[in-house]
Amino acid sequence: MAYSQLQKLEANVSIKASAEQFYDVLCHKTHQIPKIFPEKALSVEILKGAWGTEGSIISWNYLYVCVAKEVIEGIDKKNKKMSFKVIEGDVLGHYKSFKFIMQVTPKEKGSVVQCVVEYEKQKDHIPDPHTLLQSTVELCKKINAYLTQDNN
């Protein structure tokens, strides 16, 4: 029997967009992500609830035939923090539990997005999800580019 424990990967992304703008896309305009990041996200749909509300269930369809259904587990509007727990999909074939946590902190110029992936492996030999964290970092950069383009 494999020994597993909750593990964590983190990355910080400096962006030019304001924390408010970025958090608004993350929380309330999640459905725009396929338009912002068509290279990886094919669709993002709300299955239950409403955008920007805890307990809502979102279905993500990623390129490379990866599907994840996530529940918005926590929203902290004051601290611009959200957590998404994967409840169905390909990721759970490798991990017992999987959660994305994102927090946007304003800086003097722009903001910093902290991306955290918390996971528990199904088996010890399963690799850490560095590629999923990297995709999350790429998503942050794409949202930043979308929010800071001149014709926005």
Rank of each mutant, 00 (worst) to 15 (best):
K48N: 07
A41Y: 14
A2L: 00
K141D: 11
Y62D: 11
D150V: 14
N144P: 11
M82C: 05
K35T: 14
G52H: 00
A17C: 05
V44C: 02
I15P: 02
H130Y: 14
Y95M: 06
I143W: 06
V117H: 03
A2K: 00
K35M: 12
K96C: 08
E20H: 12
Y119W: 09
V113T: 07
Q122N: 10
P129S: 03
S111Y: 01
K78F: 06
A19Y: 09
D150S: 15
C27R: 09
K123I: 00
L92V: 04
V65A: 08
K141P: 10
G52K: 00
K109W: 02
L26K: 02
E73K: 12
P38M: 09
T136N: 12
K99P: 04
G52Q: 00
I101G: 01
H94R: 14
V65G: 07
S111Q: 00
K107N: 04
L133D: 05
V65S: 08
G55A: 01
D128N: 09
Y64Q: 11
F84E: 04
G89A: 10
Q122V: 01
L42K: 13
A11S: 14
L132R: 08
V25C: 03
C115Q: 06
S83P: 04
I87A: 04
L9P: 06
A11N: 13
G55W: 01
S97A: 12
K141T: 13
I72V: 13
V104C: 14
K35I: 12
A41R: 07
S14G: 07
N12K: 15
N61S: 03
P34A: 03
N151A: 12
F98Y: 15
E54F: 01
A17V: 02
K81Q: 07
K121C: 01
E118S: 08
A68E: 07
Y62E: 12
S111P: 02
S4V: 01
A19I: 06
V104Q: 08
D150G: 15
N61P: 00
P38G: 11
K40H: 14
S83Y: 04
L63R: 15
K77G: 04
E54T: 06
V65C: 05
S83N: 03
K8Q: 13
G89T: 09
I143Y: 05
F98R: 10
D124E: 12
K29N: 15
A145H: 13
L132D: 11
G110V: 00
T131Y: 11
C115N: 10
F100N: 07
I57M: 02
Q134V: 05
A145K: 13
K141L: 15
A68G: 04
V44W: 01
S83F: 03
L132A: 12
A19T: 08
H130A: 11
H130S: 11
E108N: 06
V137N: 09
H31D: 11
S56M: 00
D24Y: 05
E39Q: 14
K69A: 05
S111L: 00
I72P: 03
I36Q: 12
Y3V: 04
E120K: 02
G52F: 00
A19M: 09
K48Y: 03
H125S: 09
T136Q: 13
E138Q: 14
K96P: 03
M1T: 06
S111A: 04
K69T: 12
T30W: 01
I36Y: 10
W60R: 09
A2D: 02
C140S: 14
C140L: 10
I126W: 00
W60V: 03
